[in-house]
Design a protein around this nucleic acid. Structure first.
Length: 425
RNA sequence: GGAGAGAUGGCCGAGUCGGCUGAAGGCGCUCGCCUGCUAAGCGAGUGUAGGGUCAAAAGCUCUACCGAGGGUUCGAAUCCCUCUCUCUCCGCCA
């Protein structure tokens, strides 16, 4: 959510931002609502002042055993008027905040203006793609022939876009989760948390998934509980409504959770393999920082995520998303795209964003500087560190051998009883 | 699932038959004084949000907030209803 005062004074900048994000949205209803809101607020507050002073007078008259029925009758009228105005006000308020919650964040000045992923800007490449003297296969073929990935049975027990992992496949997924958490906690200073895998709607409004992207979520019937689409939601909301001390910043959290996404609107896309599932595992990195350091924190968050790929020896590139491709809540986003030789393409494996104070305002996460009385909003950041399923995909495709086996990257072997190679059992 | 108890400011805790209680008292914290140092003592201050005023900030001022929402009333932390959460006991259960 944007700052109300900023919206009032910068309607033109917001209009330009909406164009940059390729959104069709008219701001005038919001500004009209704001004026109306303040008009009604002023009137109702004046009446409440009148009522409060009269109340004291009535109280005094009663103590003096004087008749106060005239004043009481008068206030009866005033109170009715207040009640009516209060109802108007809360209706306007509701409409107003509903609108405000639909306005996306302002992109950082360093973000390139563009329409879609073709306008994203390449930041860097790391490593080199492996070479093969045979045709590298896509991971679903590798996984199925090794007997470690089973899409057919997952479809039987649940449906499309689910996977059943067997044996070394399941173990590899688990090894990756543990490896990632170990690196982030022991080397990057993050505190590990294990949050609930369901959250309420308030939390989802806090991070920006609601109210606009309801159709992307799985909701429990008859309850205000949603399956988490990412650990970003519960973890960012850890400090919702709190005022932190300056010394407590930055806070660094890492969490493993499964993620559940309805993938509405992506019918027919990535139907094969693990790339686009309704349920996938992810290790997430979340930071709460002071405003003046948040862009440094974004850079280090990105490099924390990169470390995992480097340790695994996987070639990747980093792009900065353009205005048209960036998420609703983000000010700036880097995507890390890993090389997948089986599909001859780069695929997103991590997305690292600075949300500045956009989520903090929605979730009401503040801090107080030492010796200051004013509170300020923190900046929130998060990034995948990494998407586990896609990492497993990358390992299968990059480490496949001519004989159909897959070599285990050395850093993972301690987590897999020193297994060096995955072969068909 | 059944029965009961509770939710007040950073924390503890008081609020009588509804009426100067944004909220006593204590602790903590901040500033000042005092004091070889520390401790103690003395004095003052110490919530959040929104509106108005102001070029802006400061200041001044108003409104709201005693778990959340609604109701009764001229007036609600105090009375009534609904919900949420916490705790205790019983039942069930990984």
């Amino acid at each position: 959510m944007l700052d109300l005062k900023f919206v009032r004074d910068n309607a033109d900048r917001i209009t330009r931002m909406l164009q940059d994000r390729r959104l069709d949205m008219d701001l005038t209803p919001l500004l009209d609502l704001d004026q109306k809101r303040r008009r009604v607020l002023k009137e109702v507050e004046e009446l409440k002042y009148l009522r409060n002073t009269a109340s004291e007078e009535i109280s005094r008259l009663k103590r003096e055993k004087t008749d106060a029925s005239d004043r009481i009758e008068e206030m009866r009228q005033v109170s009715q008027r207040i009640k009516a105005l209060d109802q108007d006000l809360s209706a306007v308020d509701q409409e107003f905040s509903d609108f405000l919650l639909l306005i996306p964040n302002m992109p950082h000045e360093s973000v390139p203006v563009g329409s879609d992923e073709n306008d994203n800007r390449l930041v860097k490449k790391w490593g080199t793609p492996p070479t093969f003297d045979f045709d590298p296969k896509p991971h679903w073929e590798i996984g199925e022939s090794l007997g470690i990935l089973d899409f057919e049975r997952a479809a039987k027990m649940t449906g499309a876009r689910f996977a059943l992992y067997w044996g070394m496949g399941a173990a590899l997924e688990r090894a990756l989760i543990t490896f990632m958490l170990d690196v982030h906690t022991s080397r990057h200073g993050y505190t590990e948390v294990l949050p609930p895998f369901m959250v309420n709607s308030t939390s989802l409004v806090g991070t920006g998934q609601l109210p606009k992207f309801k159709e992307d979520l799985f909701k429990l019937e008859g309850r205000d509980y949603y399956l988490v689409p990412t650990a970003e939601v519960p973890v960012t909301n850890i400090h919702a409504g709190e005022i932190l001390d300056e010394e407590q910043l930055p806070r660094l959290y890492t969490a493993f959770t499964p993620c559940f996404r309805s993938e509405a609107g992506s019918y027919g896309k990535d139907t094969r393999g693990l790339i686009r599932q309704h349920q996938f595992n992810k290790v997430e990195l979340v930071k709460l920082s002071r405003p003046e350091t948040s862009y440094q924190e974004l850079e280090s968050l990105l490099s924390n995520a990169e470390t995992i790929l480097q340790e695994l020896g996987l070639h990747y590139r980093v792009v900065v998303l353009c205005t048209g491709d960036m998420g609703f809540s983000a000010s700036k986003t880097y995507d890390i795209e890993v090389w997948l030789p089986g599909q001859n393409t780069y695929r997103e494996i991590s997305s690292c964003s600075n949300f500045e104070d956009f989520q903090a305002r929605r979730a009401n996460i503040r801090f107080r500087r030492k010796g200051q009385s004013k509170t300020e909003l923190v900046h929130t950041l998060n990034g995948s560190g990494l998407a586990v399923g896609r990492t497993l995909v990358a390992i299968l495709e990059n480490y496949q051998q001519p004989d159909g086996t897959v070599v285990v990257p050395p850093v993972l072997r301690p987590y897999l009883s020193n297994t060096e190679k995955i072969a068909k059992v």
